[in-house]
Amino acid sequence: MGDAKHVIALGGAGSSTLPPPGGGPMIRGDVVPGWEPVHAAFFKITGGPGERGAGLHILHRGTPVVDLYGGSHGPDTRQVVFSASKGIASVCLAVLVDRGELDFEARVTRYWPEFGRCGKSQITVAQMLSHQAGLIAPRHRATVAEVLDGRPLADVLAGQPPRWPTGRPGYHAVTWGTLADELVRRITGGRFGEVLDDLVCRPHALAISIGGRPAGPPPAPVHAATRIPFPARMTAAVFARAGTPLWEAMTVRGALTEPADRWMDRPETLAAHLPAANGVATAPSLARLYALLMVGELASARTWRAAVSPRATGRDRVLGLPATYGCGFALPSRAWRLGSPTAFGHPGIGGALGLGDPRRELALAFLPRGMPANALDDARHRILLDAVTSVIGP
């Protein structure tokens, strides 16, 4: 990672592997001088109770400056990133726009005529991708098979009215991917993961996938939090109880009954094309994806800036917090803490975080193996992003 004179080696050739203070997973990797606060923050995180290791990769001005791994994690460790998949999928959609195959400002019905039923004929692609379509779940309970297949659930969603009018967002935790997959299928004839691989991942040698059956070992498992603080338990009991919008969105109205980490560990789930949830990536590839987008390697500056411009803002009808969205990307808000007012990206319920920040010329990917107690307020993200700010400013 750069000239050896400018790198602190941690666990590489000729150096020792260092344990974090107080025990915990061993740390390996490289940190460019000046980025030691991030190294210290990573030590603090991986040494915390219940942590099982993690990967962190940061590029600044196109150069890797942090490449750290704890526990059994390494630069080639592939991991499910849950809703951080939405950021990956949003890059692919921006590429389709740049190729002239998709228009953010067009109505969805241009590509998917049946979508216009039940009062949805005026909804644009940008509105659908920014969580304004009001289709967080089917009106009647779906089956796991329909969620995994995609098209049956997409047909159901196309045939029902929006739950709310456009204007304010309502987080489509799972169905965002169902809608995006069907949109891409209508445009290209292929499934989302296939198009992502053809247009983005293979040409740039990115170890990222959505669905299908990639060669090699299965992704490293992500483990549920073992200690959930009382406030987090109370919040879940109130806002995520059966029948609430959050419960409907997260479970697709009761179709998904298993804990997220267990459901996502199933081969049939990993093989499905679920752009909202089952992306698999390594930390270096996820960071490189955002870096490539910001330098114009994947789409023109005009296109990707349109993709990351605010499209919906306000109190999210599902999350209950003020939230802002671009065309699939989460943008800085109370719901999505990305460390800078100019960042864009997406976190995941498992703790994964991928983001880019064009003003600070920063791309970052963090892949922990332990799920946070509160996915919308992951203390590990705050610790890392505060450390980054201490190095390069806000």
Rank of each mutant, 00 (worst) to 15 (best):
T257L: 10
R191P: 01
A154V: 02
P214A: 07
M234D: 02
G167Q: 13
I187Y: 14
P152C: 03
T269L: 01
G167L: 11
G190V: 12
A255M: 09
A242H: 05
P231A: 02
L256M: 14
R213M: 00
E268R: 14
T235D: 14
P203I: 02
I228N: 12
A237H: 12
P152V: 00
V144R: 12
A145G: 05
I187P: 10
I187M: 01
F230D: 06
L196N: 06
P217T: 09
V200H: 15
A173N: 05
A207V: 03
C201F: 02
G211D: 13
L246Y: 13
P162R: 12
L153C: 12
V238K: 09
T175I: 08
D155M: 00
A154M: 04
A237V: 02
R227G: 00
R168K: 09
E258A: 14
A260K: 02
A249K: 04
A237T: 00
V147C: 05
T178K: 04
E248L: 14
G216S: 04
P245L: 14
A142K: 04
A145W: 03
H223K: 05
T251G: 04
L183A: 06
G159E: 13
T257Y: 10
V156D: 12
D155C: 00
E182P: 02
G167M: 13
D265A: 15
E146V: 00
P217M: 00
P231R: 02
L157D: 11
L148N: 03
G189D: 08
